[in-house]
Design a binder for these strands. Structure first.
Lengths: 333, 333
DNA sequence: ATCAAATGTGTAATCGGTTACACACCGTGA
DNA sequence: TCACGGTGTGTAACCGATTACACATTTGAT
């Protein structure tokens, strides 16, 4: 790899001049510029980012920390973020925390030492210690966030309107004729899972059929969803609708119902949450509350880059609207 | 962030001594070491990777270039590679090429300038120019590779036994009683897609029912698979089995059959290829030829790190065995 | 007691860029 | 003619680590 000194030598100028040409900064004679550019071309010179960073420039790298990249929601999110970052001249560092707080902590350490410019964080291990650990690094929190606790910090949050989504889901199920609606919820330390469960309760507790035993945990996993629906139906054979806390569990629930030879949507209707692509592949296709995953990812990236480059002060909290997508798993006529 | 000089100052030693302590290299008095470690602890010092790289150390970062991270096959692969890399002290840079050659080229440029240590490459745009562009960077090719063309270079390839996999699939379908087996293939510039199509032909051309029109393109996409099966059945209503070039298209084919109210597996049996997790979620569950995705990812990572650290000379080409996993989509009794 | 080898530590060059500062030259208005 | 601001260019310090080399001290063998 050629260095700036080799380019300077070949063009018969100083390194400062070459640097000025590269960065389009300061005065350079038109002819000198031409000669330097020719030398750069001939030597196939590309500035060494590492040296540039050491000298004070940005690395132009942002990191995305997700709990599980093989979860389609995060894969779709990662894709959107990556796309946006690349367009802005940034490269994406992908980190898979496997839901382990210790790994997340370790990653932040590594990322800081590598002079990463900022982090987009999708975690539920968000606490004071973690935020403190990120000090003087721009951070955007996605999806799962302690909004209240983090707002006093220099922290930025992107989220979806969970409560409104749940409302849409429950009302839709009721309209489709459901008279006893169960809920499968995700891990309660995850803010979105808790929000969705609480909203479910709020929507249905006014009905005489409601009971706390209509809720079962599915751990945001396919298998958890399958087991949960089967346990629920054992307890309440008259359940005729289920609102599931995310699409992954809904896919599992659909499978569980198939195994029990229960027809969807005629005997039991299912509505999920998230809007991942895979919901369209199931049979029947899954009704779901779609988050604008791509838009959210792009926005998160945009905000992070604004923070890094300091041009403008972004809003601290942006909430995206959700959308009911009606498909076969709830269409009763 | 504290620097090595601040640590040296606080411990009343020179930077060289601090460096020796950090790297466990050279002679350091036991007591001095203790004092230095205390200073490091107190200042919360972490060596700056960027400076270390400039001074000749490795960045300890590897990059993975995939065509589409939201494709489950690559998501699972990425997860395995990330896990392995992290265990070896490396961080993973994820790059999504969107199948675009130009992006891949651009990524290599960026990665080189950022002093990445090596690349794991899953692409079909592999050509002389691309390989040349990667010169003096360790590279491991995954899954889709011009094996022959690349072997003369310093290039390493991980692949699966495609031909054997196709053999397993076809023989299984025949055993299940299929008497007219169609094939949905992926993009033919992709080596694995071509290999699978050619192997299919080799397996079935000896039968009287065989005709070239039993093959249709599905572009490795869900929607492509759906359309392909419908087109095939229009031409040949007596097709009773289909070997699909990857699981993604098989999911689409299953959907297409559902729409046509054709029962799987009784009227048409389906066998896919790859072994992604999602095949287990479908109804019926999909029979598939499973590649050991996790093992392949880990191996690719291992080889790359061996190359980077130069401890041992890995084999240039490792081929993994595949496995027939029989599930509901072909079980006829 | 003597000298070589082993041990312990510091100084300064180096990696490849950026940039503050110095200097020289030019044109122009007073 | 002089002074001054705009141009154009080079020198050298700096970013934060590593490490070759120099030097001092201790250890151990004879």
């Amino acid at each position: 790899m050629a260095t700036i000194r080799q380019v300077a030598m070949r063009a018969n100028v100083s390194v400062a001049t070459v640097s000025r040409v590269i960065n389009n900064k300061g005065y350079v004679d038109a002819n000198t510029r031409k000669i330097v550019l020719k030398a750069i071309e001939e030597l196939n010179y590309v500035p060494n980012s590492v040296a540039q960073v050491l000298a004070g420039k940005k690395m132009k790298v942002i990191a995305l920390i997700v709990p599980d990249i093989s979860n389609p929601f995060f894969a779709e999110l990662a894709k959107a973020i990556e796309e946006q970052a690349r367009q802005k001249g940034y490269t994406l560092f992908l980190c898979n925390s496997s839901e382990e707080e210790q790994k997340e902590f370790g990653y932040i350490e590594v990322l800081k030492s590598k002079s990463i410019d900022g982090i987009i964080f999708a975690t539920h291990h968000l606490n004071e210690a973690m935020l403190d650990h990120c000090r003087d690094l721009p951070v955007v929190l996605m999806d799962r966030a302690w909004i209240k606790q983090s707002l006093n910090k220099d922290t930025f949050v992107i989220s979806a309107r969970n409560q409104r989504g749940v409302q849409l889901a429950i009302r839709h199920l009721l309209e489709m004729g459901c008279r006893k609606i169960a809920h499968i919820y995700g891990p309660q330390q995850v803010i979105t899972a808790r929000e969705r469960r609480l909203s479910y309760q709020k929507e249905v507790e006014r009905f005489s059929w409601y009971s706390d035993s209509l809720m079962a945990p599915g751990y945001f996993q396919i298998e958890g969803g399958r087991k949960a629906i089967q346990a629920l139906l054992k307890k309440h054979p008259d359940i005729d609708g289920v609102f599931v806390g995310n699409d992954t569990m809904a896919i599992g629930a659909l499978k569980g119902l198939h195994q029990m030879k229960i027809e969807v949507p005629h005997q039991v209707a299912i509505c999920g949450f998230d809007g991942i692509q895979m919901t369209r592949m199931m049979e029947p296709e899954l009704t779901t509350i779609a988050q604008p995953i791509e838009a959210m990812g792009k926005k998160a990236c945009q905000i992070l880059i604004d923070l890094i480059e300091g041009n403008k002060k972004p809003k601290q909290h942006i909430e995206f609207d959700v959308q009911l997508i009606v498909r076969g798993s709830t269409k009763r006529r």
